[in-house]
Design a protein around this nucleic acid. Structure first.
Lengths: 141, 141
DNA sequence: CTGAATCCCTGACGATACTG
DNA sequence: CAGTATCGTCAGGGATTCAG
């Protein structure tokens, strides 16, 4: 029976616990990239309704066409988003969350909920830290 | 009363919902970087026990000294980790989770729990996607 | 309308060597 | 022991242009 912390296996040694990197890292890295959460959030607004490429893009004003394409492709590759292509003229493509994509929403909500409740304090901490750092370098002159 | 999804404010327009980027992005980006979650996980193994720099490093064999320093400093800046410096010879520095850092653990656990239950399926999806892609480019020759 | 291809730049990250 | 300084590499990501 392997011990885990946050889904990560680790071994007890006389020098303390040792974490061994594993696949879930890549999932977190994906979710942590610049646009993925925003795209997931857009699709989560009404999980039952597929959205067109341009609708998603309108919902995220600052994303470039290239990055939206890449982000959606990665989500499709991970099985979180379903892509449906209609061979019409002009072409139409719709995206929606897969079943697995939908099961992620509560966990995502839990995490972003914590952020919602704490980001002001984080912001304050960052400013205090930066101020203290600036003062140290000033006194060093 | 502003509407939010995943802690992110958005506006309804006739063209659909529009997400406006805000500070929490930077929190998720921080957590999503290469080492932060691993360091948090190490400190979370026994939240009551402060760890020395070298203990943390031993627990994450692949991290470089530089990246551990940077990761810890960022966590300290965000107010998630407390750094205690002892002016001894040789010097000793201990790190532990702050109160806010500890409140993050359940949310983190929820998220990584979802990953733990789904990463095999994600892995399968990735392989299927890559296989299909390889086949398409093969048939194109 | 959707997406591929190209160019380029910035920043994250690693390796190494040095310091209090 | 813990951290800094410096350098080099490489992928993420933006702007632009082309294609089906």
């Amino acid at each position: 029976m392997e011990k885990t912390i946050h889904g990560r296996p680790y071994k007890e040694t006389k020098r303390g616990p040792v974490l061994t990197p594993c696949a879930p890292n890549s999932v977190l890295a994906r979710l942590g990239d610049k646009w993925t959460i925003l795209v997931m959030s857009i699709l989560a607004l009404d999980p039952a309704r597929p959205l067109r490429f341009s609708e998603i893009r309108t919902g995220i004003p600052d994303i470039s066409q290239r990055m939206l394409t890449l982000t959606l492709r990665n989500l499709e590759r991970d099985g979180l988003v379903l892509r449906r292509y209609f061979a019409e003229v002009p072409p139409r493509v719709e995206y929606e969350l897969t079943a697995m994509g939908k099961t992620m929403l509560p966990a995502l909500e839990g995490f972003t909920g914590w952020i919602r409740e704490n980001w002001q304090e984080i912001e304050r901490s960052r400013q205090a830290f930066d101020a203290a750092e600036a003062e140290r370098s000033a006194s060093g002159t």
